[in-house]
């Protein structure tokens, strides 16, 4: 649920640009993300959406602009004015990152339970029984049988791996989660289940989310707002259903009209 009474955005993105050589990968992107809000970023490959996500999530220093994050205790901080250690701490405690490929977000050589428990230990949990109980609890929340807790992720299907990655991210109760094509590599039937799960978790945990995808059906279901990118620039932005049902920019119109109806 969006908190309309809060008077400060959680994330304030102000004129962010990033170049690769001479070529701008994303150019002068600005927006505010409010607590509980889900922002979708769509565009085709090469539009700059993943570069933007990497800048926002503390992984890639922008060449221009600022990213302000409203911390729990210190108010708004400039993400890239923080020291490396502070930024890492923020990413570990307050944020989550769901990668398209679960292998990028999971540790494949340790058990499912340890994948979840490790994140808890990183924020200070020490009691083994509690950590294991929390892992069992989270497995069930992402619809994985807790009998699989000691199995390695590589023994899981793609859909299960993705759900495990989500559990690993959410167990530390982040306030802001970045998602990069979270349903990208999955079969359609598995996608539907994952989307429904994400939708429920996002609203129940009151998460703020920035989700990058090229799949308009995904943002229709998950995102409150939409940003359409092309050649590194934001060409259109607004309420998700308004952008999809009444697109204004020629590129958005092309994008929406190119979706095949099943």
């Amino acid at each position: 649920m969006i908190d309309t009474d809060s008077d400060a955005p959680l994330l304030r993105v102000d004129g962010v640009s990033r170049y690769f050589g001479e070529r701008p990968a994303c150019l002068d992107v600005s927006f505010d993300l409010w607590p509980g809000e889900v922002m979708g970023v769509v565009g085709e490959s090469g539009s700059g959406k993943t570069t933007l996500l990497n800048c926002l999530s503390g992984r890639l220093r922008p060449d221009g602009g600022r990213i302000l994050y409203g911390t729990r205790h210190q108010g708004a901080v400039d993400l890239y004015a923080l020291g490396e250690a502070e930024r890492r701490l923020l990413m570990r405690t307050d944020w989550g990152m769901v990668h398209q490929n679960p292998r990028d977000g999971l540790r494949m050589a340790v058990s499912a339970g340890a994948n979840i428990g490790e994140r808890l230990m990183a924020v200070g949990a020490r009691h083994y029984g509690n950590i294991r109980q929390e892992a069992v609890d989270w497995l069930s929340r992402v619809e994985i049988d807790d009998a699989r807790i000691d199995d390695l992720p590589r023994a899981f299907s793609g859909g299960m791996q993705q759900r495990l990655q989500i559990a690993r991210n959410l167990v530390t109760k982040p306030r802001l989660v970045f998602m990069d094509e979270p349903t990208g590599g999955l079969d359609v039937s598995v996608q539907a289940r994952l989307l429904d799960l994400l939708r429920g978790l996002v609203s129940r945990l009151d998460l703020s989310v920035v989700i990058v995808t090229h799949d308009l059906a995904v943002v229709r279901l998950l995102a409150h707002r939409l940003m359409v990118m092309r050649h590194g620039r934001v060409v259109e932005t607004g309420l998700t259903d308004q952008v999809l049902d009444d697109p204004q920019h020629p590129y958005t119109q092309l994008l929406v009209s190119s979706v095949l109806q099943a």
């Binding site: 969006i2 309309t4 289940r193 989307l195």
Partner: peptide
Amino acid sequence: PRAILAVRRLTMGYVSQFLRVIP
């Protein structure tokens, strides 16, 4: 957008002709 969403949550309902089914 967030002000419009607040209106839709608390004030204004819309019944479309067709149900948009969520899988």
